[in-house]
Simulated assay, not measured.
Amino acid sequence: MILVPTWWIAPAFLAAVLLVDAILSLRPPAFIAECLRSVHFPEDWWWVLIVVKLLAAVGLIAGIWIPGLAAAATAGVIAYFSCAIWAHIRAGATGMAFRVNCLGMWVLSCVTMVCVLV
């Protein structure tokens, strides 16, 4: 059974990054808006991404104390960014924003999962 993470800094850091990302997405700067437009994600649905990121951040923070929740939330974040990677590849939008933002967040999420499971 997966218990609470022994090293709480990793899920807390990922939660902080997701929280900042969600706050930035309220009034998306050009690089976020261009990223979403490049994969043809409808603007009417951008709010859903904010909700998902906020819920993931809450799950990661709560997972510091609730057994198994940090691992589940991290798995959800990995799935989210895996879908984002797939959307970028399908749209042919594999520029710098893809490599830094999308792949960077996916790697951070995978590292967090390793830290949560150790």
Rank of each mutant, 00 (worst) to 15 (best):
M1Q: 08
I2Q: 15
I2S: 15
L3D: 14
L3C: 13
P5M: 02
T6Y: 13
T6F: 12
W7I: 12
W7D: 15
W8Q: 15
I9C: 11
A10C: 06
A10S: 09
P11S: 01
A12Q: 07
F13K: 05
F13A: 14
F13C: 09
L14I: 04
L18G: 05
L18E: 09
L18P: 04
L18M: 07
L19W: 12
V20Q: 09
V20R: 06
V20S: 09
D21V: 09
A22D: 08
I23G: 08
I23D: 10
R27N: 13
R27W: 08
R27H: 11
A30Q: 14
A30C: 07
I32W: 09
I32V: 13
A33K: 14
A33M: 09
E34Q: 14
C35S: 15
L36Q: 13
L36C: 12
R37I: 08
V39E: 07
H40D: 15
P42T: 08
P42M: 04
P42K: 05
E43M: 02
E43T: 09
W45A: 14
W45K: 14
W45H: 14
W45V: 09
W47R: 12
V48W: 14
V48S: 12
L49H: 12
L49Y: 12
L49P: 11
L49W: 13
V52E: 14
V52Q: 13
V52I: 15
K53I: 01
K53G: 05
V58S: 08
G59C: 02
L60V: 04
L60W: 01
A62R: 09
A62G: 12
A62Q: 13
G63Q: 00
I64A: 06
W65C: 04
W65Q: 07
W65H: 05
I66K: 03
P67Q: 02
P67C: 04
P67R: 01
P67F: 03
G68R: 00
G68V: 02
G68N: 00
L69A: 07
A70Q: 03
A72W: 03
A72Q: 03
A73N: 01
T74N: 01
T74Q: 03
V77Q: 01
I78A: 02
I78H: 01
A79C: 11
F81C: 03
F81V: 04
S82V: 04
A84I: 00
A84V: 04
I85R: 13
W86K: 14
A87P: 04
A87G: 08
I89T: 08
R90D: 09
R90T: 08
R90E: 11
A91Y: 05
G92W: 00
G92F: 00
G92S: 03
G92T: 03
A93P: 02
A93M: 01
T94I: 06
T94S: 02
T94R: 08
A97Y: 06
A97G: 10
F98P: 09
F98T: 07
F98N: 09
R99Q: 11
N101I: 12
N101R: 12
C102I: 15
L103S: 06
L103Q: 10
M105C: 10
W106G: 11
W106H: 10
V107Y: 00
V107L: 08
S109G: 10
C110P: 01
C110I: 07
T112V: 01
M113Q: 01
M113A: 12
M113F: 06
M113C: 03
M113E: 00
C115S: 13
L117D: 03
V118R: 12
V118E: 10
V118D: 10
V118F: 13
